[in-house]
């Protein structure tokens, strides 16, 4: 039985915003099948009575006073931007025709 189909991998790639060629999809679908077969073992011992652990430490929210502290200047924050304009990140069209 295959755990995952090529179409499912294509769907996941769309969700993850990664363009993939047909040959990449073929290859990955067969690899994913093998990997999922191996990792599915976790189900053998994951009984109803076992609580999940998401994190090694008991986490608590960390608060601080709402005061201004030194941070990046706009120039620094934009220093790695692929495109910028008027102290802002310049991005391709997000609404409309292009999908």
């Amino acid at each position: 039985m295959t755990a995952i189909s090529r179409d499912e991998v294509a769907h996941l790639a769309r969700l993850a915003r990664i363009e993939m060629t047909d040959s990449e999809l073929d290859h990955l679908a067969s690899e994913m099948d093998v990997i999922l077969g191996a990792v599915a073992r976790v189900q053998e011992v994951a009984g109803q009575d076992v609580p999940p652990t998401s994190h090694p430490l008991a986490l608590a929210n960390v608060f601080r006073d709402d005061v201004v502290i030194p941070s990046l200047t706009p120039e620094e924050a934009l220093s790695g931007a692929p495109a910028k304009a008027d102290q802002r990140f310049k991005v391709p069209q997000i609404l409309g025709d292009a999908e």
Binding site: P82, A83, P92
Partner: peptide, 21 residues
Amino acid sequence: SMRYGIRVGDDGSAGAEEVMR
């Protein structure tokens, strides 16, 4: 590809999601 790192395919016609992919 919006705030740092490389950006590929931003030719003025491609949308943000397409450029991301």
